[in-house]
Write a protein that binds this DNA or RNA. Structure first.
Length: 309
DNA sequence: AATGATGACAACCGCACCTCT
DNA sequence: CAGAGGTGCGGTTGTCATCAT
């Protein structure tokens, strides 16, 4: 298929940042035509701009359009981007259709400059949304003397999780367990990993974006009474959430623990080789949103307190 | 205060695809 | 159906601001 040479190759065309005067001319021209552009190629000449039509289109669609939302991304927006990216990949334009008034270019830039780096710091591959290879964890920033083999295998099991959210939560469990250097806590984390992993494997369902957004909205997690760190019980919380969604009755931790065992018997049996701490003693605690990456002091603290650089 | 490093964002570039003739 | 024109998309680069030394 033939293609006309790109106007960017025309040396006489101005490039680089747009001036206020150019912006004004472009906006005025488009507004004069009812906000509609019939031909971007012809627009520069008609508007009196010494710019490539493509450049004009980019400037208008990404920055000058009146219906564009500018400024920082909210936690909800970031969470949604991560969720959508996990299922869509680098389909920025498709992702942008799910974020009201955000452009694909802005989302792409925000991903590359913020979210991508944060995921990497959390040990999550931003491309695959899987955990980074265990070798990287052992040899890299997460290396820790005396790390129990069970935790390393648990780290490897993260690859079985299907979403960034679940990986993030499981990673947190690992970090907490490692930081505590406490046998019961580590095993508790292992148990939770097994249960969370089992939930996904048993269902064979990749969570939809709405499912994950629903999960993101839940801020209550559980920790063992007296346990100094933060242990989240993803599978248990999920059961509680599902039951509470269907009936407005709070399910106790003990009940939910039993339900987890019923739902994922194989994995629970596997985890039963370990002296799992009783979940009946769990008490509610407030934790930041798992994908609240903009304000990631929580995660930063965990990483830095355990693995000082 | 000067300078280099780093981060954030705007813009460029080339390819793929769609539409029209 | 083929080719040309035009647009959309995603990767990459350039530029400016801020921070660290």
């Amino acid at each position: 298929m033939g293609r006309s040479p790109c106007c960017y190759h025309d040396a006489s065309m101005k490039k680089g940042p747009w001036t206020e005067e150019e912006d004004r001319m472009l906006v005025e021209h488009i507004q004069k035509h009812g906000g509609h552009v019939s031909s971007w190629r012809n627009l520069p000449k008609a508007a009196g701009l010494n710019r490539c039509g493509k450049s004009c289109r980019l400037r208008w669609t990404n920055y000058l359009r009146p219906d564009i939302k500018r400024g920082n991304f909210t936690d909800e927006e970031e969470s949604l981007i991560i969720t959508l990216h996990a299922s869509l990949g680098n389909k920025w334009s498709t992702i942008a259709t799910h974020l009201e008034r955000r452009t694909d270019n802005e989302i792409k830039n925000h991903w590359n400059t913020h979210i991508r780096k944060k995921l990497l710091r959390m040990g999550i591959d931003p491309v695959t949304h899987q955990n980074l290879p265990p070798d990287d964890i052992v040899n890299g920033a997460l290396a820790s003397p005396g790390l129990p083999e069970a935790l390393l295998s648990a780290a490897a099991s993260l690859a079985g999780l299907n979403s960034a959210l679940m990986q993030a939560q499981s990673l947190q469990l690992l970090l907490q367990a490692i930081s505590s250097n406490n046998g019961s806590a580590g095993l508790m984390a292992n148990y939770n990993l097994a249960a969370g992993n089992a939930m996904l494997n048993a269902s064979s369902i990749v969570p939809t974006s709405q499912d994950q957004m629903n999960l993101l909205s839940h801020a209550t997690y559980y920790r063992p009474a007296g346990y100094p760190g933060n242990i989240t019980s993803f599978a248990e919380q999920d059961v509680v959430q599902q039951l509470n969604a269907s009936a407005p009755v709070l399910v106790s931790s003990a009940e939910s623990a039993a339900l987890v065992s019923e739902s994922y018997p194989q994995e629970t049996v596997a985890a039963a080789d370990l002296p799992v701490q009783g979940v009946a003693s769990l008490e509610p605690m407030e934790m930041p949103s798992m994908c609240s990456l903009e304000d990631d002091a929580f995660w930063k603290d965990i990483l830095e307190s355990n693995f000082p650089l």
